[in-house]
Simulated scan of single mutants.
Amino acid sequence: MRSTTRILPILLALFAAALLSPVRAGADVAIDDTTSHRLDELVAMRVGAAGANKGQLLDLLSKQFLGTPYAADTLIGSATQPEQLVVDFRQVDCFTLLDNVEALTRTTDRNQFTANLIDTRYAGDQVDFAHRKHFFTDWAQVANVAATDITGSLSPAAVTVHKQLNAKGDGSVYLPGIPVVDRDITYIPSGAVDDNVVRGLQTGDFVGAYADAPGLDVTHVGIIVSTPNGPVFRNASSLAANNQVVDTPLGEYLQMVPGIVVLRPR
């Protein structure tokens, strides 16, 4: 019989490695200490805001991410690499900011968060690259639907363009392993976002910056928050002057993009 004094350290090392190693699709997620602590705080905040509506919850919870560093390509998975469920509040990109906050609005017990995040980020609750909601309008088109596309109802100047999402102009694709998706994308040109459009926006609306390029619906996303000084676009900004989650005045942001796509959370 082997000595337990020799086996025990090995078992402990394997256990620790399992906790620290990346999580494969379908497995429980391992969360770093900083994210774990923040998750507890945010769930407690969500529980304390039981009377708030969806927009108020999105404002309250997203506000807690202001100043969080921006990091690109935070999700793990591809056509050749197994998808891993990433939960990381220490850094976010524009899409994971929305993923995290949307999932938190529906979380009143810490144990619910992972399931809510999977429900938000993936189609049919399947944690794999092919089922990840890669495009902003997937939130309004692909199960499980998280929002309704209200862009066309906000302005008579709204434009609808037929796109083949994921297909580049040269015939290649942005994301190998993901099919090309035929979809009509409706957007409001930035110059047509007048006072009537602004009055139609609500705190908590998800806004995407329309992409002129073929194969894409938007290039950036964020959340509308109404303030006494007008609406702001809360977003994880990669701009060198920001490089973190910030509130950008909507009028200022519109000067940098060709138009907007607006999804209203359910």
Rank of each mutant, 00 (worst) to 15 (best):
S3Y: 07
T4Q: 13
R6D: 12
R6H: 08
L8S: 11
A13R: 08
L14Y: 08
F15G: 14
F15V: 09
L20E: 07
P22M: 01
G26V: 06
A30V: 09
H37Y: 11
A44P: 01
V47C: 00
G48N: 01
K54P: 04
K54R: 15
K54G: 07
L58M: 15
D59H: 12
L61F: 11
S62L: 10
K63M: 10
A71G: 09
A72H: 11
T74I: 15
L75A: 02
I76G: 04
V87L: 15
T96E: 11
T96H: 13
L97V: 07
L98G: 05
V101A: 00
V101W: 08
T107C: 00
D109I: 00
Q112E: 15
T120Y: 04
W139N: 11
A143D: 15
A147H: 07
L154K: 13
A157V: 06
A158R: 01
T160Q: 12
H162V: 07
K163V: 05
K163M: 01
N166S: 10
S172Q: 15
V173H: 03
L175Y: 14
G177M: 05
P179F: 00
V180E: 14
V181C: 10
I188A: 10
G191R: 03
R199C: 02
L201A: 03
Q202S: 12
D205P: 04
D205M: 05
F206S: 06
V207H: 05
G208L: 06
A211K: 02
D212G: 08
G215T: 02
L216Y: 03
V218C: 04
T219M: 08
G222M: 00
G222S: 01
I223D: 12
I224R: 08
V225N: 10
S226Y: 07
S226Q: 15
T227V: 11
F233I: 08
R234V: 13
N242K: 10
Q244G: 07
V245Q: 01
D247Q: 01
P249A: 12
L254I: 03
M256H: 12
G259P: 00
V262N: 04
L263C: 06
